[in-house]
Amino acid sequence: MSARITPGTRRDVGLATWAFAHLAGRVSGTEPPAVFLTLGRHRRLFRGWLHFAGRMMPGGRLPRRETELVILRVAHLTGSEYEATQHRGLGRRAGLGDDEIDRVSDGPEAPGWSPRERLLLRATDELHTTRDLSDATWTELRAELDEPTCIELLMLVGHYEMLATTLGALRVQPDRRRG
């Protein structure tokens, strides 16, 4: 399927967004990320979204490795090929092994997760399925994470669910690797 809104040119997104996307592509070893050049067509909204998203990834309270586990699980649950493709590479850079990245699709009960990883994945699944957490899961999260980090986890899952919906409806294609 072709994109419903194609990634913008420098004129469409503005010099700052265009330069940012090209730098991000160089850093990740891909073409300039289509997510930036597509969403960047709405310049004002893009800047606010980028600031918000950056507070969770890469600037969040959760360790990057755990953030990537959660995002990869959301990508799997939502069927977001764009998110999955982007975050496999980012997950590797955050310290996830290929076996762990592959195991994300097996879910929280797959052997090999630490108790904390299993809890984060289970919370992600519950939020995806019910848009809520059981009292038992909440109690476990609060024993493991402080209040701000719990809030961040909830918003991280919700954000990537929203982004998967947007990217899917716009039919944004995964970025090609360079070289």
Score class of each variant (00 low, 15 high):
Ser105Glu: 15
Arg61Glu: 12
Leu156Gln: 01
Glu100Ala: 15
Leu170Val: 12
Gly29His: 12
Glu126Gly: 08
Leu119Ser: 03
Gly95Glu: 03
Leu170Glu: 02
Gly112Ala: 09
Arg11Thr: 13
Thr6Trp: 04
Ala164Phe: 12
Pro32Thr: 02
Leu167Gln: 05
Leu37Ser: 05
Leu154Asp: 02
Glu152His: 00
Asp132Tyr: 05
His42Cys: 04
Pro7Ser: 09
Gly79Asn: 03
Met155Ala: 14
Pro33Gly: 02
Leu127Lys: 06
Arg43Glu: 06
Asp12Lys: 02
Arg171Gly: 00
Thr165Asn: 13
Ala84Glu: 09
Ile101Trp: 11
Asp102Lys: 12
Cys150Glu: 09
Arg4Val: 01
Leu23Pro: 10
Glu81Val: 12
Ala53Ile: 06
Thr67Gln: 11
Thr124Gln: 02
Gly25Ala: 13
Val74Ser: 08
Thr30Lys: 05
Leu96Cys: 02
Leu119Tyr: 08
Ala164Lys: 06
Trp113Ser: 05
His87Gly: 06
Ala164Ser: 15
Pro32Val: 06
Arg178Leu: 15
Arg171Glu: 04
Val27Arg: 14
Arg93Gly: 07
Ala94His: 06
Asp135Cys: 06
Gly89Val: 08
Trp113Phe: 10
Leu45Asn: 01
Ala21Pro: 02
Leu163Ser: 02
Gly168Met: 04
Glu100Ile: 00
Ser114Gly: 04
Arg11Met: 12
Leu77Lys: 12
Arg26Ile: 11
Val157Ser: 07
Arg65Leu: 01
Gly179Arg: 15
Ser2Gly: 12
Glu140Lys: 05
Thr9Ala: 06
His51Gly: 11
Gly8Ala: 12
His42Phe: 08
Leu120Gln: 11
Gly112Glu: 06
Phe52Val: 03
Pro63Cys: 11
Met56Asp: 09
Asp98Gln: 07
Glu68Phe: 09
Pro32Ile: 00
Gln86Arg: 08
Ser28Arg: 15
Leu23Lys: 15
Ala164Arg: 00
Leu156Pro: 03
Leu62Lys: 04
Arg131Ile: 07
Phe46Cys: 05
Asp102His: 11
Leu50Val: 09
Gly48Trp: 11
Ala110Gly: 05
Leu120Arg: 01
Asp106Pro: 04
Leu141Thr: 11
Cys150Asp: 03
Glu83Pro: 00
Glu144Ile: 08
Pro63Leu: 09
Pro33Phe: 02
Glu83Thr: 00
Gly112Thr: 01
His42Arg: 14
His42Gln: 12
Glu144His: 01
Ser80Gln: 02
Glu68Cys: 04
Glu31Arg: 13
